[in-house]
Write a protein that binds this DNA or RNA. Structure first.
Lengths: 105, 105
DNA sequence: ACAATAGGTGACCAAATGGTCACATGTCAA
DNA sequence: TTGACATGTGACCATTTGGTCACCTATTGT
């Protein structure tokens, strides 16, 4: 399943922060993003690469610059075919679980 | 943020499979879960430990057995305060992004 | 009582991961 | 056309992670 790369990409706080930056303002360049992090350019590059491989970030080259855009589609897909399953289906059973644990039966 | 452990826990396919097993049927014991995996008991234990630390799995001891329950709350929280932000807010901007990338402007 | 059963711990190892650095390419501006 | 700028690559290193094993404790059934 291609979900794996998305989950792995989301597992790192730096990468989630990068997504947050892009969420706040799209189309930033590498050096622009780098300036927001306590990390060398190379570290940021690696993280962006992971995000690109997971298709969470899409890029466009223009001259010597590369602009980065947030792509919400993979997250939406995970949401649809994975998270809903647990939340919606189980929210009603949550009280039951709580009871079960507290009453010990 | 305590989200980190949840994201990290979800990053491993074996752990997601364990959650799937518990989603299909709650209250399973370690040896029961182990029998579904190509892995030693110790590996499964480690994964369950990670899931417990992330509060994605809740347990109840009874005698020499330990029953495992799926806890959807952390996933619900991530959904609420993280995924919605990207999906709902950006779904309308998705067409714009697509345009932007295709037209190159 | 005791053997089988269910679970737990710590050491250990290979592989993956996060991060840096030296170096290298392509592009823009004066 | 040359120097500064934006990005890229591969080697390299420390730490984390996924997994196994030897050994250990607690509970249960007979």
């Amino acid at each position: 399943m291609t979900d794996d790369r998305v989950f792995k990409a989301l597992a790192d706080p730096t990468r989630r922060f990068l997504l947050d930056l892009l969420f706040a303002r799209d189309g930033r360049t590498l050096t622009e993003l780098e300036s927001e992090l306590e990390m060398t350019r190379y570290g940021v590059m690696k993280h962006l690469r992971v995000l690109e491989d997971a298709n969470l970030v899409v890029t466009r080259r223009s001259g010597r610059e590369k602009f980065h855009f947030l792509n919400p589609v993979p997250i939406q897909q995970i949401h649809d075919r994975w998270i809903d399953k647990y939340t919606e289906h189980h929210t009603s059973a949550l009280i039951d679980l709580k009871d079960e644990l507290e009453n010990g039966s």
